[in-house]
Amino acid sequence: MTSIEGTTPAGALPYGGWREWRVRRVLIGFVRARPLGAVSACVILAMAFAALFASVVSPYDPNLKNTALLLDGPTLSHPFGTDQLGRDVLTRVIYGARITLFIGLAVTAVSGGLGLAIGVTSGYFGGRVDRITVMLLDAMMAFPGLILAIALVTALGSSVLNVILAVLVGFTARVARLIRSNVLSVRSTAYVDAARATGATNVRLLVRHVVPNVVPLLIVLGSLNFGVAMLVEGSLSFLGLGPPPPTPSWGRMLSSEGQQFFRSAPWLGIFPGLVLAVAVFAFNLLGDALRDHLDPRLRGS
């Protein structure tokens, strides 16, 4: 970024100025260096688009029952086949993306924000607060994630909000713990010492130096967590603890309500899981690519 001024004539810039140009440059750099990551990002964007505009994109109504076509195999008009009530599986998979992606997004965003706040405060200020925080975070992490989520959903009841809450608790603890250790190493770098020596306040040090340097880790964690959150939501739905019907959900499509038909209609069991696997795979690949791209020190870890 230091050589931008020297390499480009100012007249060649689009109207947005330096900032927009820099964003574009970073994007192009990422696509060139990590094509696999870029493809993953496209897959994710395509899924998000389909989920957002499900009513436009999907060929049928998700709850339309075509009794003439019960358990019909994949055909041109029904690429993923139909289910035991004659509903189009592709349409239900597209609508199922909504709830899974939404829960993944909510969990990632909130656990990222909370984790950043807790991790930075605990790591930067240290002392007794830090020790107590770490102890509590470790205790929260002593809960096997899915089992904590099962307990919470059992207690709270299975609405979308409660599923998000249930998955969120364990994720926040993990993000906070990792951000904290990252902050510890950033805090002891020479540039933070130098900034402090110039008389920078704590707030300035945090905002200008500490937080920007943990953001790469946060982005990478976010991408990986997004995938894992979708898996946890899928598992909960599979166990019958996810968001209640009639919301179509990938996990529930694979749960006991469809299982009895899988032998005669394998497409019911294959497609929802395949789409979830592809989505999580894309998030993992993107997370790996972002990690390699944003922070060479983390490469391969």
Binding site: G234, G269, G273, L276, A277, V278, V280, F281
Partner: peptide
């Protein structure tokens, strides 16, 4: 290995039952 981490266990399990049976 990334695939192994991405594939939902409930789906892999179902396939493992479903494929040999069909």
């Amino acid at each position: 290995s990334i695939l192994g981490l991405a594939a939902p266990s409930f789906w892999v399990g179902l396939l493992l039952l479903l494929l040999p049976s069909t």
